[in-house]
Design a protein around this nucleic acid. Structure first.
Length: 993
DNA sequence: ATTAAAACA
């Protein structure tokens, strides 16, 4: 059963506030007079639900009357057709009530459509559009408001100083208005939604962003409980995919309820390391999905929760998919739990089917209409002629496509090629010949045509009204090129334009400037990645240029490697991008792909659970005691492949986190408890055991979150240089971060001014550094609870006796990240060294790494964390490590004679030449260390560094001494010989001494 | 054969 309701509450409160302040452009209340009266803008534009401030007395009443009529007309018009289901199939609803509508699977499924009109809700709930901006922008806005007031003192004075005389007609109007709201049928119908929730255990609520489901549904439930006098039994938790949205939604809801967030009020939020909790009973909590997954560890039934609302599940994040599996099982154990799933319209049905065809209710969004154009329209209107390109790009595409794309994509591509001639014929007559020719040319190029985007921007600037332009591109490269192209033209350099590149690595993501509406006559152009699809919302965008591509990571199980490549967007992406143009007024969206391509786009991107390594998830499944990993994951909405699951289990077994019966080992339990992936967890444990906690936690935090460096556009080389300086010749990206972090701590201690200066000078993000700092605290707390350290302070001296020992820190990185090892082979003919891994053969050090141009290494081995295939296989971060660190903290040691050489090898492939006598000594010392570490893992206790007699201390200090001083005993390791074998290039390297 | 998508405990 599908139940469809239409709500007509004002969803544009946010835009109203903006217009009030805007003054500059469009139909602002400050400047509009008559225009506020004859109000098509009342529905589509400026003022939404309050009369303009310059109206007086009776005029206000008249305004309300008129405005109400316009709203109702709008509501009627919109309610006639409710878009429903995939591919814009629509179901007609002729009247309020229940109708049976036939949908796709007509033989199986009939849908009840219940329409609920709630147009008057706008009076009861002041709702405004959820925004995802960082909170700091609000401060800016308040300043704006102040300025605005100063600028137009007479208007304010007029409002303030007017004489108040009793106006009986207004009195009557106000009274009847209030009563009609109270008794309105439509308000009662709102209660039907609540009843639907009360009478079903699972409900799918579908609606586009901007329909208000996130802020309203939770409040409906809560208020219903309170009204029925059972408010104390209601405890609603609503999950959000992003930290910022959890906070901003909680703030909005609190504001609607005239309360502050948290403080034991009715609404609060909780995200990692930050919370403002509401009262325990009769409240709504917004939290990130990960929070719930953590709760499950202490309360597998979530027994105190009455309603679980999962928002934005259509995004198909790893965590929300996992929570869905758990919730589905949880319903068998908790018959009093209510689950509300909130999704975009496009695939809401799928969630309903997953929960045994649970009821669905649809809430139409009320964003402004956005006119869509496709490539053929864009070419026609710009009369664009593509340049002939050299053929190298298509050769390269062909070369990598087989490697980087999923097979389904290739099938789609073939289908596209096959249908192209037919499609081209349908264009004839409707489009000019030059356009069709241009389309054919464009079609043979896989790259996004930035010249075309330039032409389109020119066209918009020339022909269209004012309003910001947002361009979606897949990555840095494109953003940078388009920025250069624009900046090459004097027109765009003039003060009539402001251009913001937007990318997670660029400092612009933190600038409030980006969100501000520019002064009149100035056009804002934003060139962004998909960061502007969901994470960053810029309200005044009116024109969206959708480049049509998006970078997607994937996991290639065949070659066992993560990949990233630009792919065609999904329909969901395209829809989301389009929606970005309709936030303040009707907008336009230009898709840079043709209609044939559009018809072949996937509905959605592949769910994350099918694209990512699953090790961490497997540990979570085990610690939550959810049974067999494979059987659990089979229950997913879209299960990962068996191969991917088995690979993860194998990796965990190799890591000694799981035994062969798939049970958590002692190590596995510790790793599962730490909120990081298993390799990072191991890194953290070793940092604690070897007395270099603080720097190692910095590395762990950075690897599991992100590194704190910004890269300003156009200053890439400068940023590289700054990192190189901070590396202090450590030949390590990881120690570079430690140095940067310590520098920040020192600067911060000297004062806020110095902190700012330090971050600015070194291209560092203070926000990220602060987050890393907080995460370190969380890790240390875990370690203390587990018993590995005696203090929850990462900087406690007892945990940091060896923290100044860089060689030891590098060895700890080996202990954590092994077996992610690469071999360096100096290349004398060329500038750069060559790097190999066992499984991939030749790889490259990513140019961002401080080691990318390094030629003088002390050792021939690197340890890395992130390896990904893009145009080549890159190691994104790496640290040079010594043979002893590999011998002691790497895998199994074998000693053998190999072609008249006595050798010692780690896991058979990291081979060093060494006399058998020394090799056996190393092996037995390693054995001591292993048993000591195993004992420590079984019975965690801080190492007693004071008592040199204790066995712990003796073994560990011996090894630390060896690692620290080995150069004094052994000359530099030298590559002696290497030979290739099937699949793996290099097998042997020998330590010469 | 020189590069960077997003997000979370």
């Amino acid at each position: 059963y599908v139940i469809t309701a239409s709500y007509f509450w004002s969803n544009r409160d946010g835009s109203r506030e903006r217009w009030d302040r805007g003054g500059g452009g469009g139909r602002g209340s400050m400047r509009g007079h008559s225009s506020d009266y004859d109000h098509d803008g009342g529905a589509d534009g400026g003022q939404r639900d309050r009369p303009p401030p310059h109206l007086r007395g009776r005029e206000i009443g008249l305004w309300y009357a008129r405005y109400g009529a316009v709203r109702r007309k709008q509501a009627d018009r919109r309610s006639v057709w409710v878009m429903y289901g995939r591919k814009q199939r629509s179901s007609q609803i002729s009247e309020v009530g229940k109708h049976i509508v036939n949908t796709k699977n007509s033989s199986k499924l009939y849908h009840y459509i219940l329409t609920v009109y709630l147009s008057m809700l706008l009076c009861l709930f002041s709702y405004s559009q959820a925004k995802d901006e960082p909170p700091d922008m609000w401060d800016e806005d308040e300043q704006e408001e102040d300025k605005e007031k100063l600028r137009i003192p007479d208007k304010d004075a007029e409002f303030l100083l007017q004489e108040i005389v009793r106006d009986r007609s207004l009195d009557d109007y106000l009274k009847s208005d209030l009563e009609s709201k109270k008794s309105d049928m439509k308000y009662k119908e709102m209660l039907e939604l609540v009843e639907l929730i009360n009478s079903n255990r699972v409900l799918v609520v579908s609606g586009e962003t901007g329909c208000g489901k996130t802020t309203q549904v939770t409040q409906f439930i809560l208020d219903d409980y309170i009204n029925r006098g059972v408010g104390s039994t209601c405890r609603i938790v609503c999950t959000q995919p992003r930290r910022i949205s959890a906070i901003s939604v909680a703030e909005r809801v609190a504001a609607e309820r005239a309360e502050s967030v948290g403080n034991g009020n009715s609404c609060g939020y909780q995200i990692r390391l930050q919370s403002r909790l509401p009262r325990r009973q009769g409240s709504v909590l917004y939290c990130t999905t990960g929070i719930i997954l953590q709760w499950l560890r202490s309360d597998p039934l979530l027994s105190s929760i009455s309603h679980l609302v999962l928002d934005e599940i259509h995004e198909r994040n790893l965590q929300s998919d996992v929570l869905l599996i758990i919730v589905k099982d949880l319903l068998h154990m908790r018959d009093d739990l209510k689950v509300i799933l909130m999704s975009a319209t496009l695939n809401a049905e799928k969630f309903s089917q997953y929960f045994d065809n649970c009821p669905m209710i649809h809430i139409p969004g009320l964003t402004f209409p956005v006119k869509e154009f496709f490539l053929e329209d864009v070419v026609e209107m710009t009369r664009y002629q593509p340049q002939n390109r050299d053929r190298r790009s298509s050769w390269k595409r062909g070369f990598w496509q087989g490697h980087n794309s999923r097979p389904e994509k290739e099938v789609k591509e073939a289908e596209y090629r096959e249908m192209w001639p037919c499609f081209a014929r349908t264009l004839e007559g409707r489009y000019s010949h030059t356009t069709i020719e241009a389309l054919e040319k464009l079609d043979n190029d896989d790259k996004i045509d930035l010249e075309l985007i330039m032409a389109l921007i020119h066209h918009i600037v020339r022909e269209d009204e004012e309003g910001a332009i947002l361009v979606f591109l897949p990555g840095w490269d494109n953003i940078s090129s388009l920025n250069d192209l624009l900046m090459a033209q004097p027109m765009f350099r003039s003060d009539r334009f402001v251009i913001f590149p937007l990318h997670s690595l660029m400092p612009t993501v933190n600038q409030t400037q980006v969100f501000k509406k520019p002064p009149p006559g100035v056009r804002k152009i934003i060139i962004a990645t998909n960061i502007a699809e969901t994470s960053i919302t810029i309200d005044d965008v009116v024109y969206v240029i959708d480049g049509g591509k998006i970078k997607e990571t994937n996991f290639d199980t065949h070659n066992n490697i993560s990949t990233m490549a630009a792919e065609w967007v999904s329909l969901a992406n395209a829809k989301q991008r389009k929606g970005r143009a309709g936030r303040v007024r009707p907008g336009k969206c230009y898709h840079l792909y043709n209609n044939l391509r559009a018809s072949l786009l996937d509905d959605y991107q592949l769910p994350e659970i099918m694209r990512t390594p699953l090790e961490e998830l497997c540990l979570q499944i085990k610690i939550l005691k959810l049974g067999s990993i494979a059987r659990f994951l089979e229950k997913a909405l879209d299960p990962p492949t068996e191969k991917a699951v088995n690979l993860s289990i194998k990796n965990l077994t190799d890591l000694n986190a799981l035994d062969h019966a798939e049970n958590l080992t002692a190590l596995g339990i510790h790793l599962a408890r730490l909120p990081v992936e298993p390799h990072i967890g191991k890194l953290i444990l070793f940092g604690a055991l070897l007395g270099c906690l603080d720097p190692v936690l910095t590395i762990a935090a950075s690897l599991s979150f992100k590194d704190p460096f910004f890269i300003p556009l156009g200053k890439e080389k400068m940023a590289d240089m700054k990192r190189k300086v901070l590396s202090r010749n450590s030949k390590s990206d990881h120690l570079t971060i430690v140095n940067a972090f310590q520098g920040w701590e020192d600067a911060k201690q000297r004062g806020a001014r110095y902190e700012r200066e330090y971050c600015w000078d070194n291209f560092l993000s203070a926000n990220t550094l602060q987050m890393l700092h907080n995460m370190k605290g969380q890790f240390a707390e875990h370690l203390m609870h587990a018993g590995f350290v005696s203090s929850k302070d990462p900087k406690d001296p007892k945990s940091n006796v060896n923290s100044d020992n860089d060689k030891l820190i590098k060895a700890v990185i080996v202990a954590g990240l092994y077996p992610k090892v690469a071999m360096i082979r100096p290349c004398h003919s060329k500038k750069r060294v060559k790097v190999y891994t066992q499984a991939d053969g030749k790889v490259c050090i990513h140019p961002k790494s401080v080691n990318s141009e390094e030629t003088e290494f002390n050792y021939t081995w690197l340890i890395y964390h992130l390896k990904m295939r893009t145009t080549s296989i890159f190691l994104y971060d790496c640290t040079e490590v010594s043979p002893f660190s590999l011998l002691f903290f790497g895998g199994d040691i074998t000693i053998q004679r190999d072609e008249d050489q006595e050798t010692i090898a780690v896991d058979q492939w990291i081979v060093f030449r060494s006399p058998a006598r020394i090799a056996h000594l190393v092996k037995s010392l390693k054995k001591e260390l292993d048993s000591l570490l195993e004992e420590k893992i079984r019975n965690p206790a801080p190492v007693d560094w004071q008592n040199r007699q204790s066995k712990d201390c003796a073994v560990i200090t011996a090894i630390i001494d060896l690692i620290t001083t080995q150069e004094n005993y052994f000359p530099r390791s030298i590559l002696q010989r290497s030979y290739g074998e099937k699949g793996s290039y290099i097998r042997a390297l020998k330590l010469f001494y």
